[in-house]
Design a protein around this nucleic acid. Structure first.
Length: 251
DNA sequence: TTGCATGTTCCGGA
DNA sequence: GTCCGGAACATGCA
């Protein structure tokens, strides 16, 4: 996510959009190929922002909102570069192409005429996980009794954590994914917030969740050993999502 | 061929 | 009303 924001920030700010090519309308939401082209051709990209898993790409006119689902990517390419088979939308500019690439098309692109409309699209989304204070984090998490894994993944509560990151955060905080928010004391909640900040800041710096050997990430296969204590990791479903945790050091 | 996958949303049941 | 699991979505891979 953060990596895709950088793609825009480093290459596209100020670039003039000459053409918008939609190769698969399946990724468009609330607009059409013609609508997207007419709204953005002739506009210039402004400074992008990220909120949770959303990338906001303002122009000197409308605001483009991008979501990447599980398999989406944003690429900066020379105009001459051949299309990738999963390039769904191409924004051709005077400097090169911004290409929205996505295999599974689970989410896609939205168009907001102005910032008020963009706010309405994100109205149900909670505060960004890296912007939330410890106090607010604890207040939002404990507002209701929820399973930890489920509440961390709930974008309405806190925006930005996906399945792998939620597992990583719980592993760092040494908390079992199937415990509930009601069981945690202040210390455990503070540890959860600290783990969240550490994991996300490292991920943001790297532009992705780093596949480090000393992290849980990269140990998702059954039978793998916990990189902290060496005990076998457990793989199961929690809150309906595949979940990896260490029964020995997560309590 | 079948099941699973890094996300979101809708639905039915508790 | 709230919360949870399951299904659906579209596609590729083991």
């Amino acid at each position: 996510m953060e990596g895709f924001r950088r793609v825009l920030a480093e290459h596209a700010v100020g670039a003039w959009i000459s053409e918008v090519t939609v190769r698969d309308t399946g990724v468009l939401h609330g607009t059409t190929a013609r609508g997207l082209h007419d709204a953005l051709a002739g506009r210039s990209f402004a400074v992008p922002a990220r909120h949770g898993k959303w990338l906001l790409a303002p122009t000197d006119g409308p605001i483009l909102l991008l979501h990447f689902g599980m398999t989406g990517e944003l690429h900066w390419c020379a105009a001459a570069e051949p299309y990738h088979r999963h390039d769904r939308v191409i924004f051709a500019t005077d400097r090169g192409d911004v290409r929205y690439r996505d295999m599974r098309k689970l989410t896609g692109l939205w168009l907001a005429p102005d910032s008020a409309a963009a706010d309405r699209l994100l109205a149900g989304t909670g505060p960004d996980a890296l912007a939330v204070s410890k106090q607010e984090f604890i207040a939002r998490l404990t507002a209701r009794r929820r399973v930890l894994k489920g509440v961390l993944l709930d974008q309405r509560v806190i925006a930005g954590m996906g399945n792998l990151v939620a597992d990583e955060v719980l592993w760092w905080a040494r908390l079992r994914p199937d415990r509930t928010t009601a069981e945690l004391d202040e210390g455990a909640l503070a540890a959860l917030h600290a783990a969240l900040r550490q994991v996300l800041r490292t991920g943001v710096r790297a532009g992705r969740v780093p596949p480090r050997k000393d992290w849980l990430t990269g140990h998702r296969d059954a039978g793998a050993a916990c990189p902290r204590c060496g005990h076998p990791l457990r793989v199961s479903k929690v809150s309906g999502r595949s979940t990896v945790w260490c029964p020995h050091c997560q309590r």
